[in-house]
């Protein structure tokens, strides 16, 4: 009969009303991200808390958006020293190619997703500052496998 579909529609909306809201009250409530969720790039550290990065620059070349930048200086003995590892989070598209490419597992896609900021300067991050690259330490102390 003409109109039965309309009445059925009324019943469905009412049924959904009783199902209750599905809203997640962010920021009080937060959903857990799946393991693979890709958000801001973050450096990884070894057991002693030293960055794993060897300053090989592969990630820098890999990033399609040229978001990563490593300022590396070399000491006299040829060891690499990371002056700054700059990451422009505002321009990053969280594609994960840098992490995939890093042969030393030195960076990861973290689960940090609350990236909004009031200060434009916060969109450029310095991931590592003034540390020896991992390979350098290995050369010096030989404590790294």
């Amino acid at each position: 009969m003409w109109g039965s579909g309309i009445l059925k529609g009324f019943a469905i909306t009412m049924r959904n009303m009783f199902r209750g809201p599905i809203t997640v009250m962010y920021p009080e409530q937060k959903l857990t991200l799946p393991e693979r969720a890709r958000w801001a790039v973050a450096p990884r550290y070894d057991a002693e808390g030293r960055p794993k990065c060897t300053a090989c620059l592969i990630c820098v070349n890999e990033c399609p958006d040229h978001v990563l930048n490593l300022e590396v200086s070399k000491s006299e003995d040829g060891a690499k020293h990371i002056d700054r590892y700059v990451y422009e989070v505002g321009a990053c598209m969280m594609c994960g190619l840098c992490v995939e490419a890093c042969p030393f597992d030195a960076i990861e896609m973290s689960h940090e997703y609350e990236l909004a900021t009031r200060d434009h300067g916060d969109l450029v991050r310095v991931l590592l500052r003034d540390v020896d690259a991992a390979s350098t330490r290995r050369a010096k102390g030989g404590d790294d496998a």
């Binding site: 909306t13 009303m17 599905i22 809203t23 009250m25």
Partner: peptide
Amino acid sequence: LGRLHLRI
């Protein structure tokens, strides 16, 4: 409307 639409 919110409740009907699964919102709060």
